[in-house]
């Protein structure tokens, strides 16, 4: 990994002190019991309940379109810039390109993030690009490129989903032609418990199995992005170890969860439209 020498990077082999706190020495099953107690999660949600979402457009004045999303503690800003000619390209491309950059702010996670994109951020950027490529009418701006930057201010789980949902909103705010609105939801699974929209702690317990020999030790994370009216999956990612039957069931659950978010985006866009109309009528 090359290091940017123009910035002060700090020592690279530091560790967050939280690792050495006694609470962190708990085994996975203990953590799990603390987080999920008789069907209720630690923040008193039911397993299939999404956290509350707040969205706003037009937060970055320099950008063509921008959106801010808050899923309780998870906070992401997405900005979309004007289409520009694809740099360093000789041949003509019939379809426009999308450039995505997903970045965790240095202070957004427990461990400090560096300024340069690491492997996880690059992976997320690619998934975001995949999701948005299927949503944007790329044939409308041939040989041009739209830049989308997502910055996570605070990561409390499901940051990628929040970023994709917000990017969809920012794109429509920018007036980029799109087939439809896009919504994204993350899901965690540990044994038989399904956790929609997991927090960081819940994500952590879904990453590893409790016991090795048991039959029902399924675990994992699933991210899905749906295009609403056409009922299409724009992006899908799963990691962990999940059986086929379970995963097909999870896809159905996620479909519903994605549809639930759509009205929030619609409302936010309506608000934006009303505001713009009022502004222009006042000016006249």
């Amino acid at each position: 990994m090359p290091i940017d020498h123009k910035r002060i990077n700090g020592p690279d082999d530091t560790l967050p002190y939280q690792l050495f706190i006694k609470l962190n020495r708990q085994s996975l099953s203990q953590k799990y019991k603390e987080l999920v107690q008789n069907g209720k999660r630690h923040d008193s949600r039911t397993p299939l309940q999404h956290r509350k979402i707040f969205m706003k457009t037009g937060v970055v004045s320099q950008a063509k379109g921008s959106a801010y999303i808050e899923v309780e503690k998870t906070k992401v800003i997405v900005s979309v810039f004007d289409p520009r000619e694809i740099p360093n390209r000789q041949d003509y491309s019939l379809k426009g390109e999308i450039y995505c950059e997903f970045k965790f702010a240095p202070f957004s996670c427990e461990k400090r993030r560096l300024h340069q994109l690491d492997a996880e951020e690059k992976q997320y950027s690619q998934m975001m690009k995949k999701a948005l490529e299927a949503t944007v009418c790329r044939h409308e701006f041939p040989n041009f490129q739209v830049d989308i930057y997502a910055l996570v201010l605070h990561n409390d789980g499901s940051a990628l989903s929040a970023a994709i949902t917000a990017a969809g909103l920012a794109l429509s705010h920018a007036g980029v032609p799109m087939y439809d609105l896009i919504t994204s939801v993350t899901l965690g699974i540990q044994k038989d418990t399904i956790l929609i929209d997991p927090t960081t702690k819940e994500e952590q317990i879904c990453r590893a199995p409790f016991v090795k020999e048991q039959e029902d030790n399924e675990h994992g994370l699933v991210v899905i992005s749906m295009i609403h009216t056409h009922n299409q999956v724009a992006q899908f990612y799963q990691t962990g170890s999940i059986s086929l039957e379970k995963l097909s069931h999870l896809i159905e659950t996620l479909e519903k969860a994605c549809a639930d978010i759509v009205p929030v985006i619609q409302q936010c866009l309506v608000k934006h439209v009303i505001k713009t109309i009022k502004k222009s009528s006042n000016a006249n």
């Binding site: 299409q232 086929l244 159905e252």
Partner: peptide, 15 residues
């Protein structure tokens, strides 16, 4: 089991 599923390529798919 399935350990990873990743959608690649340009288009989208019906569930």
């Amino acid at each position: 089991r399935l350990s990873t599923v990743l959608q690649t390529g340009m288009g989208s798919l019906h569930p």
